[in-house]
């Protein structure tokens, strides 16, 4: 089975500005795929290219195994980051209309709209105008509109922005359910904890360049350093094989990261701690970096590169002037 989305070497420039330099990835059915990157990294541009709102300068994009066509559009649900609805229309009428545009029959669209409103506990507002709804309610309606036609590919920009914890849970459950049913879900977000919790695979782009791509867990492993995180009391530097004790500014006091010599195994350290009566531990784990750490690290590397390039540029200017 071909992937839901197959992107090969796309690039896109707006005038002088290179929004996307190079990206190659695929999104599979039955997975939640996270699209990460700092502001202005090219996430929205990439999404818009997948949706054929804008066309790449080079590279190919296939959706459901072929270039995006109208039949495919009926099976896509898209929720842009900045959202809006027809404010002066009645909730149910508007949902029915947008459902029919996605190919549902009017009666079916109305039925589904109503059942989704019930599920979101908004049934009482079906006949109300959209503008009468609170912002959070409107967000939920927008989400319902996006998934009403049970899309095989769902693309959401910041799915949880503006939602309270309860509604965040509702939307999250809904996304899991869609994944269970085999839909491919692309979510673009800044919230790394959500990605760690929900996403199966991820793509991180920075400055239009693809930086990380693959299984979320594998990427975290890839960035793992040979270290452990411990919490407890005692002088950790006394332990054999520890090269550096790094205290972590986490909320919990006393957490430190112990960097280890390559030949020392985690079991060796644990055994050593157990043998040493002056040390007590409450927590002991491998130091797998959070996506937040990785994100910051990658962004920082890029920033350094930029600084280096700028310096080179400046030096060249000086050389030119000297000549």
């Amino acid at each position: 089975m071909s992937p839901a989305v197959d992107v090969q070497h796309i690039a896109k420039a707006f005038g002088q500005f290179q929004a996307v330099r190079e990206a190659t990835f695929e999104v599979r059915f039955g997975e939640i795929f996270a699209l990460l990157g700092p502001n202005g990294a090219g996430k929205s541009t990439t999404i818009r290219m997948i949706l054929d709102i804008i066309r790449p300068d080079s590279g190919t994009i296939r959706v459901f195994g072929r270039p995006l066509d109208d039949a495919a559009k009926n099976q896509i649900g898209y929720l842009p980051e900045e959202r809006g609805l027809y404010k002066s229309q009645k909730v149910l009428d508007m949902m029915t209309y947008l459902g029919t545009l996605k190919g549902l029959k009017p009666a079916e669209s109305r039925k589904r709209a109503m059942s989704y409103l019930e599920r979101l506990e908004l049934a009482d507002f079906a006949k109300k105008k959209v503008s009468d709804l609170s912002k959070g309610m409107q967000q939920k309606v927008q989400f319902a509109v996006t998934v009403m036609h049970e899309p095989r590919l769902l693309i959401i920009d910041e799915p949880f922005s503006g939602l309270d914890p309860v509604n965040r849970m509702v939307v999250k459950e809904w996304l899991y359910e869609l994944r269970q049913k085999g839909s491919a879900i692309v979510m673009s977000t800044h919230q790394m904890n959500q990605v760690e919790e929900m996403a199966d695979r991820l793509l991180m782009i920075s400055r239009g360049q693809q930086r990380l791509y693959g299984e979320v867990q594998a990427i975290r492993e890839q960035y793992a350093i040979h270290a452990i995180i411990v919490e407890g009391q005692g002088d950790w530097s006394r332990l054999d094989g520890v090269t550096q004790v790094e205290s972590l500014n986490e909320q919990r006091r006393g957490a430190v990261r112990l960097h280890l010599r390559p030949e020392v195994s985690y079991d060796d350290v644990l055994a050593a701690i157990a043998r040493d009566d002056s040390l007590t531990i409450e927590r002991f784990e491998r130091a797998v970096p959070s996506l937040d750490d990785i994100f910051i690290q990658v962004a920082e590397e890029d920033a350094q590169e930029v600084r280096w390039l700028n310096r080179r540029e400046a030096e060249r200017e000086v050389e030119k002037e000297a000549v």
Binding site: R48, L51, D52, I53, K73, N74, I76, Y78, L79, P80, G84, L85, Y86, L98, L101, K102
Partner: peptide, 8 residues
């Protein structure tokens, strides 16, 4: 909404 409409 236009962005949603043109993808439909």
């Amino acid at each position: 909404l236009m962005e949603i409409l043109v993808t439909t």
